[in-house]
Design a protein around this nucleic acid. Structure first.
Length: 586
RNA sequence: GCACCGAUGGUCUAGUGGCUAUGACUUUAGCCUUCCAAGCUAAUAACUCGGGUUCAAAUCCCGAUCGGUGCACCA
């Protein structure tokens, strides 16, 4: 029996959701095309993400290049850290992590170069742990695609392995755009690239994939969220660090999770809520969704807390689709160091603070002529002294190893009170990072149903069992939103059908017109691609200007007027209008 | 990357050295047809790619590609 992945992918290929890329030339692992329906579906998923993060939270979207220069990825750690030193056994051709093999011999093997690792393996006669064979030279396998910028190959570029760096690199501009106020956020939806060693699992692990990421910069001293109250009662499946030790998932409200210290703070919890609402809205089943906290040893050393949204898939088990991390100031600090620019925000205090400050004022009128070229250094040495060191009649400082005595008359000092209005702080970054392809696949799988239908053969008593494949996509994400079907393929029914198509299109609804074959077949075809509503034109339409609307999930029909059909259908799709209110039951 | 298994119209499939490569479903055109894939007529459409063995290869051998599984890697 085919498993669900196989069924979903078969349907996805056949009906134009997902295709293997480059199939004409035999295909290449790790790449997928979105067909006509898939591309529309994915776009709708992205637009719901925009609705939540950009429109409702105000985290504006930016668009940075998919190619990045080397500095960016040196700062981010991808040049050094996104690769593994591998060594291959010459006998059994098994690959091993070279740093893992020598970790009993050497203290910090991950700091060594490939050459050094090769050397150590040779000197200590490290053999293949599988067959005892000789190991080959150590080589670095970096998961980034490398390219050259401009002719000559002098400037190295990399295809970005994540969209996040774009927001970090634009940080100084973003601070100004948001008028020097925390918190603020920027988002990006776009392609990222990782040259996976061996991509499997179809659309779950791709070499080119789409991420939707938000980088939200917050004040490290205040990780509350103003809208947290709105989501505090939302209960979801939490698989915390303690839960993973005991193997238990707990359904808990976010308010309680923050109160009990399970989720580090409100802001992170609020991101979990947005994630939950997004995933459920696009069609992921809530009962097949959990949030798993990273274990301490799994979390990056700089991260304060990190949760993955995981979706249960029939074949792959729990699949990570979103990562939500408090990355603290790690990324901004790293880019500040690499670029030698200050990446901070000036934050003013509510009330200016008075600070007692000890100030030394050397009398340069005396010291200048006395020390000439050395005077500046002497003055700086004096300024660095503490009050007790200035108490004697003669003050002694050391400049360039030379002890210099200065009369106390040449140095004044006092304690002054200064008003400080604020300070420069490095914001902390909350990063929700979504794998759009995995989410799109997951919602297809969760929407996929095969139903047994009992049909009575015309004259016979016996019941034939048939199969109905239906994609129960939320109407908002369904690629084709309505089908217009003349009951019979006759001109007198086609014509009003086409008029309805025109009205729906003007209202921005993607509509398909289909008059081929029997009506039942056309309903089934639309069920299979998840079209939520089918509008059927029959002979009564010609009499009283009404049509039937069929609900995909229940196969129920109502009768509704043609006059406001576009508003009716629009409300069904976008406004949550209930189907029973769409017309008279039949 | 390694090992094992597999690959025939859009989908499922027959074919195990020898005629024009089976069949079903789908699709298209038409007929029929007043609401849930099944009526009639016709049409379109396939041996993953490259090399070898042979008079002759979809079939046997080698290699590649893709897919599946396990290992490794990855999150």
């Amino acid at each position: 029996m085919a498993d669900k992945y196989e069924q979903v992918l078969e349907l996805a290929k056949r009906r134009g959701f997902l295709w293997n890329s480059f199939e004409l030339y035999g295909g290449t692992a790790g790449f997928f095309d979105y067909g006509p329906l898939g591309a529309m579906l994915k776009r709708r998923v992205e637009n719901i993400w925009r609705d939540i993060f950009v429109i409702n939270e105000g985290y504006y979207e930016i668009e940075a290049p998919t190619i990045g220069i080397e500095d960016i990825f040196i700062a981010s750690g991808h040049v050094g850290g996104f690769s593994d030193p591998l060594t291959e056994c010459q006998k059994c051709h098994e690959d091993f992590r070279a740093d893992h093999l020598v970790k009993d011999i050497i203290e910090n093997p991950d700091t060594l170069s490939s050459e050094e690792l090769t050397d150590i393996i040779g000197k200590n006669n490290v053999r293949c742990p599988e067959c005892g064979g000789k190991l080959g030279n150590v080589y670095e396998f970096n998961l980034m695609f490398k390219t050259a910028i401009g002719p000559g190959g002098k400037r190295i570029g990399y295809l970005r392995p994540e969209t996040a760096q774009g927001m970090f690199v634009d940080f100084p501009r973003l601070v100004k755009f948001y008028r020097d106020h925390l918190p603020f956020g920027a988002t990006q939806i776009g392609k990222a690239y990782r040259n996976e060693i061996s991509p499997r699992q179809g659309v779950i692990r791709l070499r080119e994939f789409t991420q939707a990421e938000a980088e939200i910069f917050i004040d490290p001293r205040d990780k509350t969220h103003p809208k947290f109250k709105e989501v505090a009662d939302l209960a979801m499946n939490l698989y915390s660090q303690n839960g993973q030790v005991s193997g238990e998932t707990t359904k808990m409200s976010l308010g309680d999770a923050v109160k009990n210290g399970i989720i580090a703070h409100e802001f992170l919890a609020y991101c979990l809520a947005m994630t939950y609402q997004f995933l459920v809205r696009v069609g992921v089943s809530p009962e097949k969704l959990r949030f798993r906290q990273h274990m301490k040893d799994e979390m990056a050393h700089y991260a304060a807390d990190c949760w993955d949204a995981e979706i249960l898939s029939d074949r792959f088990g729990w699949v990570e689709v979103v990562g939500i991390a408090d990355r603290t100031d790690f990324d901004l600090k790293a880019h500040a160091k690499q670029s030698e620019k200050e990446l901070s925000v000036y934050v003013s205090y509510d009330t200016p603070r008075k600070v007692q400050k000890f100030v030394v004022k050397p009398d340069m009128g005396v010291l200048g002529p006395m020390f000439k070229g050395k005077a500046g250094k002497v003055a700086n040495a004096l300024k660095a002294l503490r009050p007790e060191e200035l108490s004697g009649d003669v003050i002694e400082v050391t400049v360039d190893g030379e002890k210099i005595k200065i009369d106390k008359k040449s140095v004044k000092f006092e304690t002054v009170t200064e008003e400080i209005h604020g300070e420069n702080i490095i914001p902390h970054v909350i990063e929700p990072s979504f794998g759009i392809d995995r989410i799109t696949y997951s919602l297809l799988e969760h929407s996929y149903f095969e139903e047994e239908t009992k049909e009575k053969a015309d004259d016979e008593e016996e019941e034939n069992e048939g199969k109905r494949i239906v994609l129960r996509l939320p109407p908002e994400v369904a690629p084709v939103q309505a089908a217009v079907l003349p009951l019979l393929s006759r001109d007198e029914l086609r014509k009003p059908g086409n008029e309805i198509v025109g009205k729906l299109r003007k209202a921005g609804i993607l509509v398909a017109f289909d008059d081929s074959g029997t009506i039942g077949r056309r309903y089934r075809r639309n069920d299979e691609i998840g079209t939520p509503y089918s509008i059927t034109v029959d002979y009564r339409t010609l009499e009283d200007d009404t049509v039937t609307i069929r609900d995909r999930d229940t196969m129920k029909q109502v009768r509704a007027p043609v006059s406001d059909i576009e508003k009716n259908v629009y409300d069904l799709i976008y406004r949550g209008k209930s189907f029973d209110d769409a017309g008279k039951g039949i």
